[in-house]
């Protein structure tokens, strides 16, 4: 009796000590997130209710919802939102479709598969700025290759300024981002395809399914989770993407390629009206938080952790 009594507190103590270890190990990342993410976001929320301009400090002061009202009643934000929606829609649809085609192609067994896989996935490693430089060299009216190729094929008669023409600027950007973004989908979908058990296809064959039927009835349903995950993540990525647009068009011409994220980045890097910029950040943050909640619900992330 006495023995167990003395043993129990010791055991509890040992358990407690062991339980402290994971918290200590997670302390550095949690601190980083608190200092460089949670605090800044709180700061943005606070600033969004103020007039805050480091260049004109005499005007600084509490403004209530003034910044939000200015954003919502102005046209700048809504125009940018429209561009963002177009941008995200086309990027996700096109990247997914082409990514799926590539994954299907590379999921076949043939010689040189490894070679094509390595080759086609290269843009995955490229940055937005780099992609902007590469495509600038293609689109450029004076030194680019696109005009020459299209003229040779007979699709156009005179060279076009693809990036500075308001009607072609956004499609040009979409193509460049497509180039860089496709490998993400191709890689994720191919990996998921390779984990589909081959028995399923054999069973399908016995039931007389042709290639198209087995794609629709076996491959796609098996990929469902990956598709949901990648399309949602990419939606958020593209909504937030700045590098490529900023470097290739800077949001121009006449705002035709100014997405909400570009507007935000311009607010931060070019304007000093930080209160207004912060209020816009808050609006973006709320929009994405709603996305995140939906995302968490659909994918039920972390449920297996129990």
């Amino acid at each position: 009796m006495k023995k167990t009594e003395t043993a129990t507190p010791a055991l509890v103590k040992a358990k407690k000590k062991r339980n402290l270890a994971p918290y200590l190990l997670l302390l550095p990342p949690v601190l980083l997130v608190l200092i460089f993410m949670v605090y800044p976001i709180g700061y943005v929320f606070r600033l969004s209710f103020y007039d805050y301009n480091p260049v004109m400090p005499w005007l600084n002061g509490f403004k209530g919802f003034g910044n939000f009202v200015a954003i919502i009643t102005g046209s700048e934000f809504w125009q940018a939102m429209l561009v963002s929606l177009k941008w995200v829609f086309w990027e996700v649809i096109l990247q997914f479709t082409l990514g799926l085609i590539i994954a299907l192609l590379l999921n076949q067994k043939f010689k040189a598969r490894g070679f094509f896989r390595a080759l086609i996935f290269i843009p995955w490693a490229m940055s937005g700025v780099l992609t902007a430089v590469l495509w600038n060299l293609i689109y450029n009216q004076n030194i680019g290759i696109l005009n020459d190729l299209l003229m040779k094929v007979g699709l156009i008669e005179t060279g076009k300024a693809w990036i500075s023409n308001p009607s072609t600027a956004l499609p040009s950007l979409i193509l460049a981002e497509l180039w860089r973004g496709v490998p993400f989908f191709a890689i994720s979908l191919l990996a998921a395809m390779q984990s589909i058990p081959t028995e399923l296809y054999e069973a399908g064959k016995i039931d007389g399914a042709n290639r198209w039927q087995s794609l629709i009835h076996i491959t796609v349903p098996q990929l469902k989770e990956t598709i949901v995950l990648t399309t949602l993540l990419r939606t958020v990525n593209e909504f937030n993407s700045v590098d490529l647009i900023y470097s290739l068009t800077g949001g121009g011409p006449v705002g035709r390629t100014t997405t909400v994220s570009i507007l935000l980045a311009n607010q931060a890097t070019k304007s000093t009206n930080y209160g207004y910029g912060s209020a816009m950040s808050v609006i973006c943050f709320i929009i994405l938080a709603i996305f995140a909640v939906i995302y968490l619900k659909i994918t039920r992330f972390g449920k297996e952790e129990n």
Partner: peptide, 11 residues
Amino acid sequence: QFIPHAVLLIP
């Protein structure tokens, strides 16, 4: 993963 990086620029 969801935080827009542009939001963090000013703070």
